[in-house]
Design a protein around this nucleic acid. Sequence first.
RNA 1: CAAGAUCGUCAGGCAGUCGCCCCUCAGACACUGCCCAACACUCAAGAAUCAGGUGUUAGGUAGUGUCUGAGGGGAGGAAAGUCCGGGCUGCGCAGGAUACAACAGUCGCUAACGGCGACCGCACGUAAAAGUGUAGGGAAAGUGCCACAGAAACAAUACUACCCUGCACAGGUCUGCAAUUUGAUAAUUACAGACCUGUGCAGGGAAAAGCUGAAAAGAGUGAGGUAAGAGCUCACAGCUGAGCUUGGUGACAAGUUCAGGAGGUAAACCCUGUUGGCAGCAAGGGGUUGGCUCGCUUAAAGCUAUCCGCUAGAGUCUUCCAGGAACCGCUCGAGCCUAUCAGCAAUGAUAUGCCCAGAUAGAUGGCUGCUCAACGACAGAACCCGGCUUAUCGAUGGUCUUGCUAA
Length: 114
Amino acid sequence: MISKHNRFNRRNHVRYVYRKGQFIRSKYWSLNYISKPVDKSYKLAVVVSKKVSKRAVVRNRIRRRLFESVRQSHQVIPPGVEVIITVYDESVANMPQAELDKLLGVSVDRIRLQ
RNA sequence: CAAGAUCGUCAGGCAGUCGCCCCUCAGACACUGCCCAACACUCAAGAAUCAGGUGUUAGGUAGUGUCUGAGGGGAGGAAAGUCCGGGCUGCGCAGGAUACAACAGUCGCUAACGGCGACCGCACGUAAAAGUGUAGGGAAAGUGCCACAGAAACAAUACUACCCUGCACAGGUCUGCAAUUUGAUAAUUACAGACCUGUGCAGGGAAAAGCUGAAAAGAGUGAGGUAAGAGCUCACAGCUGAGCUUGGUGACAAGUUCAGGAGGUAAACCCUGUUGGCAGCAAGGGGUUGGCUCGCUUAAAGCUAUCCGCUAGAGUCUUCCAGGAACCGCUCGAGCCUAUCAGCAAUGAUAUGCCCAGAUAGAUGGCUGCUCAACGACAGAACCCGGCUUAUCGAUGGUCUUGCUAA
């Protein structure tokens, strides 16, 4: 799990990012993000709807794995960027770690390019 | 040891590494409050001193925040479904009646329950046993319903078939008499009477039978009775209800006396009894100033649907302070462990010890290695408890019954 500094702390702010931010789509998830240069650290949220899995245990596991993959600096989100990862597929819960890191790295790198 | 039944317990382990949430302690820094010392100014005047006030600097102390370090704690038996019950909070009081809803054997347990335990009744189960289930008030207060099929679905009649009597017709048998034929016996025909059979009509009887259906009139045996029969009558047995006796706290059981003739359905209405005020942690939580509107016994407002009773305030705007997507409620509780005692048990009492998640885009984890039969089922707290129901890979302990073997 990541520190409170890197989490979102307001419910309405998620809606703001969804509405105003930019959007990247990939096979298992999509990224909505917005840049706020004032902040010194990035912010990250993971959204897993009940459509993905009805079991809370599975949804929790997906969320934790994605947080951990970002935290352990396999990929670097630039400071001041707020990102929401919306997951589409239940198979993220049991995907091998190397593959998860690789796919997530591709998505995060596309933020830097734009 | 085997088979059957039943009651529990656990819910992978270890190590490495990188993290998250809460609490406690220590240190550093920042801010705020208070205390104290020195100095300056002020009070303050012609001058000096003391007390008071203000500011600066240094120190102490308390609180808050950030960072660092150390220590402690961190999902479940169902955390789930949200089906019952309670605590807690608000609604001024929580009072009554009706409506509405839920429940229904007895005794006990519990904060309470629609839950639990023991027992009773009924049903099931086994070769026998151990056991299992139970949607358990009233159908003899009344109303309704009983599809399809069937003669008929609770009302006694009708229907099919049955029995008895009478009349008519047809046939048969017997008897009597007449006519014809014959020598005679005899034969044929007609008529009358009796009996039998069949058909039709009329009157009466009504028990058994009628292939259906979930269910069929609901009284089993014997005797009497009758044209034949029939609870038509009687006796006995069984059932139901009431009374009495004995046993039991009680449901009830056993016995006995009297009465009765009754289909099912109450998860149809209904009747009887018991219980329930409404909303829910998005509950709810501060002081203060001044107005305006309505009302003050013909009660505005109110706590549900209606009524009664009860209360003199209620609603709304606004000033200032406090607060600032915050904080409190928020986790010490009908709490947990162990032992003893009471009780068949559910459960209760006493004693020692313990503190055991509290997040808020929401912590309790990610990865790697070893290990185990097994990558480990079902599954993630959200105010808190007691139950119920549903999901669940497996591992393991006890108890009971029966059988076999050995001592």
